[in-house]
Simulated assay, not measured.
Amino acid sequence: MTASGTQQWNPADYQRHGGFVPELGTPILDLLQAKAGERILDLGCGDGALTVKLIQLGCAVQGVDSSAPMVEGARRLGVDALVMDGESLNFHEQFDAVFSNAALHWMPRAEKVIAGIWRALKPGGRLVAEFGGHGNVATIVHALSAALAARDIEAPDPWFFPTPEGYRALLEQRGFKVQWTLLVPRPTLLPGDVGAWLNTFAQPFISAIEETARADFIASLVETLRGPMCDADGKWWADYVRLRCHAVKP
């Protein structure tokens, strides 16, 4: 059996169960070194929590996200945000920088994304991004895959977790001058148990299960993952691995 679920985003649920994502994105925002007056594209802006920090620096920011509810949430924060697929960006040499946090791993057709970023940047413009890299949430992925296989269910992998070498090659193939690509292991404390994480971030897998059986499926995964992910104090940690990159359009 093959399933083809999609990921849906709810701003309130995201803030409750994934609020750590923009909070932990501050280091990559610092690496952007944004300057007042720069025009910046926030690719995959989500609910705008990081985007507003760029606006506060005096940048002219355009946010884009494929999720209409998240774009609406960003607009409520005062962000100029558009619903747009990151694999079909529609800009031409308009931006000094493209910034992206925790979004590019949701765009598996990386060549199309990189081509759109290239078009969007002015000559001399830069891409600074952080997203899931090779080995990201491997413990969860392995448990999900095993649990689905035991039920004879195939769910397409929605994530793109490249190696630094692989992503560098894609950027250079398009013409970017790559400053660096690197993996950053970042064990991440979850606000609850892994069940809330699965409901928020792994919907393409969870939706492969019949709706009446999903609660039991998630509960069994929580028990499977308790050993490797839950510490002696009852806190749950996910094995996040982030890929950071900085590239310049000559």
Rank of each mutant, 00 (worst) to 15 (best):
F161W: 03
F176S: 01
D157Y: 12
A146E: 14
L170F: 04
R151G: 10
W180L: 06
D157F: 15
K177E: 14
T181K: 06
G166F: 05
P156V: 06
T139M: 12
L170H: 02
Q173D: 13
L144F: 06
F161V: 10
R151K: 06
Q179I: 09
V141G: 10
I140N: 00
A146S: 09
P158Q: 09
G175T: 10
R174N: 12
W159L: 11
E154K: 14
H142M: 15
E154T: 15
D157C: 15
V178I: 04
E154P: 09
P156H: 13
A146C: 14
P156T: 12
G175K: 03
R151A: 14
L144V: 02
V141K: 10
T181W: 12
P156W: 13
L171N: 01
G166Y: 02
Q179W: 13
Q179K: 05
Y167M: 13
T181G: 07
T163Q: 02
F160V: 12
P164F: 10
A143N: 03
F176M: 04
W159T: 01
A147G: 11
P156A: 14
A150G: 13
F161Q: 01
E165H: 04
A169K: 07
V178K: 08
R174H: 11
R174C: 06
E165I: 06
H142T: 07
R168L: 08
L144N: 00
A169V: 12
R174G: 12
R174D: 06
P156I: 07
K177P: 10
R151D: 01
R174T: 15
W180T: 07
P164D: 04
I153F: 13
P156L: 11
E172I: 02
T139R: 09
T181F: 00
P158A: 06
W180D: 14
F176D: 00
G166Q: 07
V141D: 05
A143R: 00
L170W: 05
D152I: 03
A143M: 03
E172W: 11
A147Y: 03
W180H: 14
L148I: 05
D152P: 05
G166I: 11
A155I: 01
A143C: 08
R168M: 08
A150P: 14
V178W: 07
G166K: 00
E172C: 02
L171D: 00
P164E: 02
G175W: 10
W180E: 08
K177Q: 11
L148T: 07
P164M: 10
T181Q: 08
S145K: 08
E165T: 10
S145M: 08
Q179S: 12
G175D: 09
L171S: 05
I140W: 03
P164L: 01
T139F: 06
F176C: 01
A149W: 09
L171H: 03
I153R: 02
L144E: 02
I140V: 07
D157E: 15
V178H: 09
Q179V: 13
F161S: 02
Q179P: 02
I140L: 11
E154R: 15
E165L: 11
T181E: 06
